[in-house]
């Protein structure tokens, strides 16, 4: 056990040495830590200039509240967590795919396994060390987003009506939870890249396979679902599986993956669900609020998402370990 830990430690040091020399790490960090907060501050300044004294300020929105929520030290740090969860493609997926490509794809591309696995024949240690290093780099990226967001927000207080107040402890906890959730995505990306033996194909799979599967489900629900009573649907209804199938989105990878980040924006999501429900009722039908919430993943809780990620993570890691231990280095 001690030898395995020592071997894992050596792999972590070697992979850290290598990944620190990858330019893409610095590009990712610069985009997340500097460009995003600067854009938020620019947007806030534009909003301040445009909205202050306008009819909007008096009628609907307090500009000061808006800027405090968006561009205060707490607000910018929160944007660093939330924005990547709502962008498409998500910077979370981009970062994870690039890290997995560097960690497990490059040794194959550059035919390095034949020397690495002789220098360290304990394949479990090699895989664990590489995975831990990639996960640690993700942690550094997220921690940097938190710290730099707060720092840029602090700079913003010099020219915006903002202050440092906010639920910092909860935000830090959500960052930590999001980082833990990303381990599952990292396992999936590593598995795809390693099993497909092709970095490009693996990255494409990481980007598109989960949304594709989930999208197909959404299309099926929207176009057919259980509404037409045919033999197929009668079978499912007879087996009392209808409710189970309708609850499938609760188990989708994407919905649960970003939940910690999206929790910060929960009030906004609730509003969207309420609006859609109202529109549906006005039109004399349409899906109910629960169904919309289900499709948007708004009915999920953090413990549920944690459980789902743990299940997915266990499956992906098991498959990855089996593939890595069995693979011959040709």
């Amino acid at each position: 056990m001690r030898a395995a830990l020592a071997a894992t430690g050596r792999v972590v040091r070697a992979e850290t040495f290598r990944l620190l020399r990858k330019r893409r790490m610095y590009v990712l960090a610069a985009l997340w830590w500097v460009v995003l907060p600067v854009l938020v501050l620019l947007l806030a300044r534009v909003l301040q200039v445009t909205l202050t004294g306008s009819f909007v300020e008096g009628e609907a929105v307090s500009v000061k509240t808006l800027l405090q929520g968006l561009a205060s030290p707490f607000g910018v740090a929160r944007v660093g967590l939330v924005a990547p969860a709502y962008l498409s493609p998500s910077p979370y997926v981009i970062a994870v795919a690039l890290l997995a490509a560097a960690g497990l794809g490059e040794p194959r591309t550059h035919r390095m396994w034949k020397s690495t696995l002789v220098a360290e024949p304990d394949r479990r240690a090699v895989l664990a060390g590489t995975f831990l290093t990639m996960q640690a780099f993700l942690g550094v990226l997220l921690a940097g987003a938190f710290v730099f967001g707060a720092a840029f927000g602090a700079i913003g207080t010099t020219f915006l009506p903002t202050a440092a107040e906010g639920a910092w402890g909860r935000l830090a906890g959500l960052y930590l939870l999001q980082w833990a959730h990303l381990a599952t995505l990292l396992a999936f990306a590593s598995l795809a890249i390693f099993v497909l033996r092709n970095v490009t194909l693996g990255v494409v799979t990481t980007f598109f396979l989960p949304p594709l599967v989930e999208g197909l489900y959404a299309v099926w629900r929207a176009t057919a679902g259980f509404e037409p009573l045919n033999r197929f649907n009668a079978l499912f209804q007879g087996l009392e599986l209808q409710a189970t199938l309708e609850a499938v989105p609760r188990w989708f990878l994407s919905n649960n993956l970003y939940l910690p980040a999206r929790t910060s924006a929960a009030p906004l999501l609730d509003e969207v669900v309420g609006t859609l429900q109202a529109v549906g009722e006005e039109a004399g039908g349409g899906p109910g609020g629960a169904q919309i919430a289900s499709l948007l993943g708004a009915d999920l809780t953090l413990p549920h998402a944690g459980l789902v990620m743990a299940v997915y993570g266990a499956i992906f890691v098991t498959l990855l370990v089996v593939a890595f231990l069995r693979r011959e280095v040709a």
Binding site: R21, K22, M112, K114, S115, A119, P121
Partner: peptide, 15 residues
Amino acid sequence: RRVGTMIEEPSFYPY
């Protein structure tokens, strides 16, 4: 760990 190898063309991280 006590073996040194150079199997086929030696490969390295080019960067």
